[in-house]
């Protein structure tokens, strides 16, 4: 006899009943909070938004920062455009995230559900990627403008020969890369752990449909 048939026979007829829950046991369950991967992704994406919005806009609240920007040689039109762009990108990502979350439905088939979650995670990934690129550019630009506006830094640069200047530039570049790299690794690890099981199951399902 086919092994599974034997199992099926037993599964349907002889499996011991679990301890049956009464309605009074079930009502409190409806009030409990879900700990699903979607909930976790949702909290992470909110944290991402808050974190990067804070990084972008908090410095503007400090008068020292504003004074420094005013004294700098940065083109004000460029600065305004960057601020507008930052706002636009945040709004765009909030919209994309909202749409992605709305598309997740537990009543879809398994493959579709996994795809919706992976898609949501992608939106967050792009948002993080965008912020890391912006952080990278800002740090390089910031260092460049600092050499022009900070008198101490400017003085130091005039003392250096070409080799020294290149050395400073390389050091700034490497430091920036290391900083961005650490954040990137952190995300890799965070999402790697969170999505491990889902990715494995999705791969398995995809394999079936080749």
């Amino acid at each position: 006899m086919d092994e599974l048939e034997l199992l099926k026979k037993h599964w349907q007829a002889k499996m011991p009943e679990e301890k049956q829950l009464k309605s009074q046991d079930l009502y409190p369950m409806l009030l409990k909070k879900s700990s699903s991967i979607v909930k976790t992704l949702f909290y992470i994406s909110i944290a991402e938004l808050v974190f990067w919005i804070a990084i972008t806009f908090l410095p503007k609240l400090s008068s020292a920062y504003n004074a420094q920007v005013e004294n700098s040689t940065i083109n004000p039109i460029l600065l305004t455009s960057l601020t507008v762009l930052s706002f636009a990108v945040i709004i765009l990502f909030i919209y994309l995230l909202y749409k992605a979350y709305k598309s997740i439905s537990v009543t879809d088939n398994a493959k579709k559900l996994m795809e919706s979650i992976i898609n949501t995670r992608k939106v967050i990934k792009y948002y993080v990627g965008y912020n890391l690129i912006m952080a990278f550019i800002s740090m390089l630009l910031g260092s460049y403008y600092a050499t022009k506006t900070d008198p101490k830094f400017g003085e130091l640069m005039t003392k250096l020969d070409t080799g020294g200047k290149i050395g400073v530039a390389v050091a700034v570049l490497v430091l920036t890369l290391v900083f961005v790299g650490i954040i990137w690794l952190f995300y890799k690890l965070l999402y790697g752990i969170l999505m491990k099981r889902l990715n494995r199951n999705y791969k398995e399902l995809k394999k079936l449909d080749v």
Binding site: L4, W11, A110
Partner: peptide
């Protein structure tokens, strides 16, 4: 996990149409 899901639906006497619809394959 995926194989378990297939076995589960099979043990519950679901036909292949239902299995394929549930799993999306």
């Amino acid at each position: 996990d995926i194989e378990k899901a297939l076995v589960f639906l099979y043990l519950e006497d679901k036909n292949y149409k239902e299995i394929s619809e549930t799993m999306g394959i």
